[in-house]
Design a protein around this nucleic acid. Structure first.
Lengths: 217, 217, 217, 217
DNA sequence: GATGAATGAGATTTCATTCAT
DNA sequence: TATGAATGAAATCTCATTCAT
């Protein structure tokens, strides 16, 4: 057994080493200018070996996405645990999401890319399915927090938690995207808008969301 | 003079015919699996001619994006004009945006793609600049409507119209994206969520947004 | 008649204007990166018009070569006229050739290109034939000078003037080429060679040639 | 280890096979009308494979030039070894050069092309550098022979061996060029010149050179 | 398990030349 | 005479994937 286990462990290690190398490459250029050659070189492995561990370039990209999702799920989980009331959890999740997008912009992009193209990923590899499953977890955490908030009275009871979870996730995603990609452009082109930092705007957004979720007095 | 004018008109017509053909191709596959060969064939023109009218494949893609932006701007403008009060305008814009994404999903995708990658578009063609300019128009319309709403008392006065405009645009974009790409997946994977139609969720989102913008009583 | 003549004159003028423009382009880049588009733009004429005056790009290039040849022939003629004795004429021609290569390096290159590829120029245009004819003139001038030298006793009588003319022309051409293209390289790579300026080397070559032509005492 | 060596040997073989095929193509047309498609077909290999062995078309061309240089250097070396005295060595080198140009006219052209365009070759491939290095060898052999001749008294001591080596190489190159490209033309156009064979003219040239190098009596 | 040579189907772009007006 | 839109054949180079060893 020891041998089998060691082999499995080594295989897993190598797999991770490949993903490490692939990240370096994928994250240093545009997704589609990265080549398997580059990745193989970065991994100090032959190209053929890459295909021993991953069915395709796409599959390898999904493994990276998977990593990002795991990190995000972990951050969401921790955020939720720290807070008692539902509305606080929602707020903490929001902060965690923004924090994630700043600490791991490349993972954020990979995830966004996956979200926007998941239908087109034809692979039926384990990685693809894991991604699909993991992709739902953040949503579920949000939904659970909303339910908790309704129960503890910190969130209006007339919202639909499932739908609202989708709404919040979609909105957050879109907001982070626009801020990371276009805020500088807006600042340059419309100085009269007197735009502040992304943090400022995120804060403003939280205020609005909070107001829309709080129970009416 | 008639001749010059006719020539110019014909040139514009052909340019549009090429964009038509390109749309057929771009919209029937992924952006980056579409080839200039395909487009030339669809346009019943030689590949060389394509490059007579567009500097590059990218430039041609931008021309399509430009069309989408023009349509969106038109829809926003009309939506705004129909309503009197600021909050109504905002609501109408939201509806228009969703309507646009349903009527012209491909244009919506092209625009989203442009938003997310505008930094990487290196071309300095007229089309690229027009796109950058046109891309700001919707945001400005939203901002103006917010200002109007603050003035006419239908929107809380403690929001920052510029920041809120960005927030609303980003959020709307993200929400539409997630709904169009992932709602079916959610429905299939989580029947217990009891998810309704996209329209339903959009409606729910409007409620939330409305609540966050209305003046506190 | 006046009209016909004026037309012919104008046509010639335009032809020359085109050659002017073509020179600017050809001489500012490598021969084969120059495009007819560039030339047309430089000539402020349409591409079609170029083909009204020149059968092909090649033909246009030959017209430039022709100009260079005319200049060279003129310089050779003047050099020859200035001197009395054959050996002096030969020396003056040599100086003139080197001077030409420095004053008109682009023409020199064009001519060299023509010399090396004349067999491949398939065009049967007037320009091509004129080039072929003009290309022989320098050789004839050298040969005549050699004959003169033999007659006036300044050049050994046991040389064959025709063959020697070819030899001198070929050698001079080759020497100028190597000096203009590779002298710097040699200087850099072999500082121990202690190479002087091109002029110095040319001077050295003249000495050698002079010695090989002078009558034995 | 046998395996590694065999692999290396096979790789070298294939590399050479590609150069063989490329020569067939390059030498049967002009350098710049040869296409990688043609070469791939001649090599019975895919185009992609060509680029596995050579960075670019230019690089492949340089590999051919390299071959020619190696042959020439070999011929020069042998010519020099056979003779005792410096002036004899120079003469033998001259004969070898002419012999090379007749036996390997295509290599001669390739080398001439390289000499005339070496500055424009931007590649920094090993092949390019090897070519640059190898290109200097013949010159050095000539120079060494001149020095030897000065030492052994068969060549005038008042010449500068480095400069004279350049002169002789440049002149020889130019003479061979003009003879191979234009002699027939001269014969046809000027029968009164009574031109003999290229060999005859080469012989004449040797006489002249010999006279210019021999010590004055 | 690992290799890396080979593939081959394209991809984008260029440009000399023609021809209807 | 002049135009300039259209052509279309090519040209170079890329890269995910496979497979014999």
């Amino acid at each position: 057994m020891g041998i089998t286990e060691r082999k499995a462990r080594e295989k897993e290690l190598r797999r991770n080493a490949i993903i490490d190398a692939a990240e370096k490459i994928f994250f240093s250029r545009e997704m589609d200018t990265a080549t398997m050659d580059d990745i193989a070189e970065a991994a100090e492995l032959s190209k053929g070996t890459l295909y021993l561990y991953f069915k395709s370039k796409e599959d390898l990209y999904l493994a990276i996405t998977r990593r990002g999702l795991d990190i995000l799920i972990d951050m969401f989980s921790k955020a939720v645990k720290k807070k008692k009331y539902g509305i606080q959890k929602i707020y903490a999740i929001g902060l965690a999401y923004y924090s994630f997008s700043r600490k791991h912009p490349d993972y954020f992009n990979a995830m966004t890319y996956f979200l926007a193209h998941s239908q087109e990923f034809n692979e039926n590899t384990p990685t693809a399915m894991e991604c699909a499953l993991a992709g739902d977890r953040p949503l579920i955490i949000v939904r659970d927090s909303l339910i908790k908030g309704i129960e503890d009275g910190t969130i209006r009871s007339d919202i639909n938690p499932s739908e609202t979870a989708i709404i919040l996730m979609g909105q957050s995603n879109g907001l982070i995207q626009i801020l990371s990609k276009n805020l500088e452009h807006f600042k340059n082109m419309h100085p009269q808008f007197n735009l502040k930092s992304a943090e400022n705007i995120i804060d403003h957004a939280f205020n609005l969301i909070h107001r829309s979720l709080e129970p009416s007095t």
